[in-house]
Design a protein around this nucleic acid. Structure first.
Lengths: 225, 225
DNA sequence: CGACAGATTGACCGTACTCAAGCTAGGTGG
DNA sequence: CCACCTAGCTTGAGTACGGTCAATCTGTCG
């Protein structure tokens, strides 16, 4: 659409809002809208990638596809979050696929203008570095989940993380359906369901559809210790 | 030791060697040597961290420690590699512990002088971004290993990766003992041993201590497909 | 030669996956 | 308004993969 729209969108994204108007204006020519509806694929694993994406509205998933066709959700992205930065810096094929989980709007910002912004504003470079570092940290957290925690601990640590700041009575609303959350936690839907059931039986949580009420945060923390 | 030594070391590290002499000289006051012997802990999970490390010689492991005391190796670092950059940018406690695997020497570069280098040289910022992106990519690869591949596939993909460029007859030398490699692949030593045995029986590799000879690269690739 | 860490092998077991059947709730059309 | 349909979720039974524990073997170093 119009350049004014894009500039307005950029101004509201955390990554870009500290840029000067002139710097932001320099991004606009390299930025375009990507609209998509639920289920639409943004890029496939292996595709080349010459820029990064910012979610304006809607939800997006990043997923790995196994050889048997089943897929494993790596990340669920919400408005304000960005993705594909790392692949842009390396100029390599994407290691994951990206897909709209619901109708939404992204901005695609070309590598070229990002490099320009880095060169013109060290503060921007630092924010990009902080962003990547954050991503790396949550990835370490994920590896920890997958490699040293069992299914019960994975579910609990997920709920406690989503329920920040955690306190008894807090309601955690699952942002997407349970199948996707299960995949995100590297569990089958069956196992996820059973673990939730187990938590209900131990009076640690209550489940009302997609709303999970944390009833005993301390008890939960004890189990992940 | 002397500033001259440090400057000379920095000059040989990939991350810093493209800096101008003046820029490198600016790093020296914020850099100091860290010598350690085998088994010595560099930092514990949870420690604060105000700079990054570069391995000059020796080997270092990054590991997660589970509550039962057992640990899971996340990364094995060789000379020229750096670590703790992400934690430095975020100013957060370390999510992992670091330990010398053999007697070695590190350089610790303070966050302060790194930030200075980023501000003074956009090219340096880009190299840092590329470095973090690379780390992120290998992390995605790891998550893929842990979540969609079974033990056989994990071992094969590790061997093929280490044996780049892969060809029949290539010898992959394990950089550390099999227990550590097993942990790196999120396997027990027993399982790792059994998988190697299985590969030998299928005439896909030969094992001579820590040297693994790739006998049938195509056959291996087929199994990980 | 003995001592020790690392590596291997075997027997057993447990967690989470698979497959299959049933349940629930929200939406649609007769 | 109700029967039906479907996607999402739950529950059950059986299984397999990889882990645990314990014994043994190998090789290296003092």
């Amino acid at each position: 659409m119009s350049q004014i729209d894009i500039d307005a969108f950029l101004q509201h994204q955390p990554l870009f809002q500290q840029l000067s108007p002139a710097q932001r204006a320099a991004l606009v020519p390299g930025t375009h809208e990507v609209r998509g509806q639920k289920g639409q694929v943004i890029f496939q694993k292996g595709d080349p990638c010459d820029g990064m994406y910012v979610v304006v509205f809607g939800k997006v998933k990043l997923a790995l596809t196994a050889q048997n066709g089943s897929e494993k959700v790596m990340e669920i992205l919400h408005p304000g979050q960005s993705f594909a930065e790392a692949v842009m810096f390396l100029n390599r094929p994407c290691p994951v696929m990206a897909q709209f989980l619901e109708d939404g709007l992204l901005l695609h910002v070309s590598a070229e203008v990002i490099f320009g912004a880095i060169a013109s504003d060290p503060g921007f470079a630092q924010r990009m570095l902080a962003g990547l570092s954050l991503r790396l940290h949550s990835m370490v957290r994920d590896v920890e989940r997958y490699s040293v925690e069992n299914s019960l601990q994975r579910v609990i640590s997920y709920l406690l993380q989503e329920g920040q700041p955690a306190c008894n009575g807090r309601v955690v609303h699952l942002p997407v359906n349970k199948n996707l959350i299960a995949s995100r936690l590297n569990l089958t839907p069956e196992t996820f369901s059973r673990v939730l059931h187990q938590l209900v039986e131990s009076v640690l949580v209550e489940v009302r559809g997609r709303d999970i009420v944390l009833m005993d945060v301390e008890g939960m923390q004890q189990l992940v210790s």
